[in-house]
Simulated assay, not measured.
Amino acid sequence: MVVLTKPSLGQVSLTRPQKPNHHHPPGIPVINLSEPGAEALVVRACEELGFFKVTDHGIPMELIAKLEEEAVKFFALPQTEKERVGPASPFGYGSKNIGCNGDTGWVEYLLMEITSKPMSHASLAFLTEPSASSFRSALNEYMSAVRKLACVVLESMAEGLKIEPRNIFSKLVMDEESDSVLRLNHYPPCPMPEASEGVVTGFGEHTDPQIISVLRSNDTAGLQISLRDGSWVSVLPDRAAFFINVGDSLQVLTNGRFRSVRHRVLANGLKSRVSMIYFGGPPSGERLAPLSLLMREGEESHYREFTWCEYKRCAYKTMLADNRLGQFEK
């Protein structure tokens, strides 16, 4: 796999080591989706951490491996060929620069807009070329499967919360106008700075704006999540499982009962890391506010109502680490 074209370490940010957490860090919840009682475990994980791993998810490993193989082939192309796809604005190919507000990372990526309609890749013209047919096929199969998985998890949340209808969350990502995204990230092996006071950031700390994120990676470590006390815990990779993030929008819908998880990726000195993330978002005009079904008697809404389009515009104007929800709180 090809590394980025000799990017200098001055172009990416350093993360200073955090104060160690002397308490035994909690394990990442692992939930078998087919076992009885999974719904209650999903709710507890969303409340306590905003992050968990799912197994027995029903997506064949062959399908997962197929898209990963296509991603590896794409990122191994000469830099000039990859740049034909971009620049990411926001969709397309990007390298080192994340967004348009100065965030940088030791990463290159492909960002694609996904809808429930037949897949539209208007910003990725290369996918219409005959040579990209296997990539296009892998994307379609993977997206169909991972969207269904997102809905299974979201419906488990509704069941665990004992609210009706069962699809109260999942209908938002299955809507024909749902604003969903697939991101393929490649973190090349990183020549670590000698005697550095920090480590190189692959992708800076942030929360995901959407409702739910479904992610997986190859066998290379790097992902970390933040606990409530501000300490960071490394997530061991598991290429056969999927990890679920609660997004900002779901935090709003549950009036803060579910918490959007803050996470980051640190660069690896020796191995490439490839990750694939599906971000399930609501339709652009969807109005987001805490669901009355989840409000306890006398409980007040922590957020003012806003549309997903409004929130997304706000997110694009911020830095990764900013608290985007802050300006929507009451």
Results as ranks from 00 to 15, higher is better:
202 G>I: 00
281 G>E: 10
28 I>L: 15
66 K>D: 13
33 L>S: 11
307 T>S: 15
125 A>R: 15
318 T>Q: 10
241 A>H: 09
99 G>S: 03
23 H>D: 13
70 E>R: 14
192 M>V: 07
251 Q>S: 12
71 A>T: 12
246 V>S: 07
136 R>S: 12
97 N>C: 01
309 C>I: 04
260 S>L: 06
84 R>Y: 02
189 P>Y: 07
3 V>C: 06
144 S>W: 04
139 L>M: 14
229 D>G: 08
61 M>W: 05
82 K>D: 03
51 F>K: 05
173 V>K: 03
143 M>I: 15
304 R>M: 10
131 S>W: 06
151 C>D: 05
42 V>G: 02
221 A>S: 14
231 S>F: 07
97 N>F: 00
86 G>H: 01
168 I>Q: 11
229 D>K: 07
233 V>F: 08
165 P>N: 06
250 L>A: 09
25 P>H: 07
315 A>E: 13
135 F>K: 04
36 P>M: 06
120 S>D: 14
244 I>S: 06
27 G>K: 13
207 T>E: 10
247 G>W: 05
222 G>L: 02
20 P>K: 09
145 A>H: 12
264 R>H: 02
93 Y>L: 01
164 E>T: 12
5 T>R: 12
107 V>N: 00
314 C>A: 14
237 P>M: 10
193 P>K: 06
269 G>L: 05
21 N>Y: 06
177 E>K: 14
243 F>W: 02
67 L>K: 12
171 K>S: 15
193 P>N: 11
86 G>K: 02
111 L>F: 11
243 F>P: 00
10 G>W: 00
24 H>A: 13
286 E>S: 05
210 Q>R: 05
298 G>R: 04
36 P>K: 09
226 S>M: 13
290 P>Y: 10
96 K>P: 00
4 L>Y: 01
82 K>V: 03
100 C>A: 14
177 E>Q: 15
196 S>V: 01
95 S>W: 01
240 A>P: 02
190 C>M: 04
179 D>P: 06
321 A>E: 01
257 R>V: 08
43 V>L: 10
88 A>H: 01
155 E>H: 06
242 F>R: 07
89 S>I: 06
73 K>D: 11
32 N>G: 11
220 T>L: 06
148 K>V: 10
77 L>C: 04
148 K>M: 12
56 D>S: 15
240 A>K: 12
25 P>R: 11
303 Y>N: 09
104 T>F: 00
254 T>W: 09
126 F>Q: 12
295 M>V: 10
140 N>S: 12
173 V>C: 04
17 P>N: 09
201 T>I: 02
251 Q>E: 15
298 G>Q: 10
212 I>T: 05
210 Q>N: 12
177 E>S: 14
199 V>H: 01
94 G>M: 00
237 P>L: 06
226 S>G: 08
75 F>H: 03
101 N>L: 00
135 F>P: 02
76 A>N: 13
274 V>M: 03
53 K>E: 15
262 R>S: 02
29 P>Q: 05
128 T>F: 12
154 L>Y: 02
236 L>M: 07
